[in-house]
Write a protein that binds this DNA or RNA. Structure first.
Lengths: 214, 214
DNA sequence: ACACTCCCTAAGCGCCCGCTCAGCTTCGGC
DNA sequence: GCCGAAGCTGAGCGGGCGCTTAGGGAGTGT
């Protein structure tokens, strides 16, 4: 599973799959601009400028500004799904896998906040077809988390009256990290991940919590 | 519980404090448009059109498009703060007050989703001065919730290793409801409020939870 | 040497934006 | 009956938007 070639922590600067080089630079510039100011407030001139190119250069590599957002959104969602899938298929009981899923998912939203922000909050700027494709990816993310929680309920590890609602809340909690996380703040992405993993285990009534935290 | 003068469901259509009538109609139209498409993607012609007026009419009542957002944001935040304050100063133990705060806060975010969406997600579209004012209101919301949690820890009702982080997570969880809540979905605002109140009591390790939920 | 392809730029098209302004109506006070 | 203020509109301004087009320079195969 997973995209190989990344070990952990470093994650080998993403967007490696985007070629040629100029197209990648434009895409990275677009991620930064969209995250800072929002899709609609970002101009194609701004994106091209950040990438050190003229406005026209953008249209050699992308048909429209929306295609840029679409590409960013698809790659980002695939990465998010990978993270959840890896955790869900890992070893250990439901509690371990849920903590792992939440910890790494939150770590990604905090550590790669600019990407996550675009991916999670600019969905509505996509046209109907592109949005439908992305929404499908989102539902698969939801299914991964729900699967772990259902496992835990089945084995008696968790005590959850409303599995669908709780799944929604867990994902919502993780996603919103991209909104408030501050790079200059006092917490590292890993610390937030650990805090959230503990909070989520409490939410599902897990008895096997890691003894508070240090 | 909750704020007098509204019986339930209706909430006495808000924005009553905005006068004259035309100014209120414009403001309500702006809330809808901003919530649907975002501040930057909304045109002044769209706002005026929804209110049944010509584009120029907007500028009789508001100096700029940004002033509209500022007004919406201030009134909305004040309403949110009122809800939290009422719950925090209520009777009962910390668990009851926290459940009340989360339940009504979430109920507002779900029931008045269009307003909440603008209030919570368009903050960055404001200029520096307006944003600073709103951020101050937000910090007071944070302080209300943290106060309840601190109370619960002090009395031994809660068991929370990281009060600041948990407060942040609780508020984040509630706020994100405005992003995903669907009016056509299967849950009412009150149901989501009840679910979230239970989840939050679990997060703070409250022993006095309401026996699952109905 | 030549043609061909790939990237890229300068210039600019057509459109729609936020916002303004002169002038029209409506209405209360006298 | 007349006046001034208040509320609103039609027309339109300066400007910036997304995107297009014509053409240039660098690299490659022959």
């Amino acid at each position: 599973m997973s995209t190989a070639e990344e070990t952990r922590g470093g994650e080998t600067e993403p967007w490696g799959e985007v070629t040629p080089d100029a197209a990648r630079r434009l895409l990275v510039a677009a991620v930064e601009a969209f995250a800072e100011r929002g899709y609609h407030a970002t101009t194609t001139r701004d994106i091209a400028g950040r990438a050190g190119m003229s406005p026209a250069a953008l249209y050699i590599h992308y048909k429209t500004k929306e295609e840029l957002l679409h590409r960013i959104s698809r790659i980002g969602h695939q990465r998010a799904l990978d993270i959840l899938r890896t955790a869900a298929r890992g070893e250990g009981g439901a509690a371990e896998r849920l903590a792992d899923a939440v910890g790494s998912f939150v770590g990604w939203h905090a550590g790669r906040r600019t990407t996550a922000r675009v991916v999670q909050y600019e969905l509505d700027a996509l046209g109907p077809e592109a949005r439908a494709e992305i929404v499908a990816l989102r539902r698969r993310c939801d299914a991964e988390v729900r699967g772990i929680i259902e496992d835990g309920v089945a084995t008696g590890e968790f005590e959850v009256p409303d599995v669908k609602g709780t799944t929604l809340a867990v994902l919502s909690l993780c996603i919103d990290v991209a909104r408030w996380f501050n790079v200059n703040g006092s917490r590292t992405p890993d610390e937030v991940g650990a805090l959230y993993a503990d909070l989520v285990l409490r939410m599902v009534g897990s008895k096997a919590r890691g003894a508070g935290q240090r």
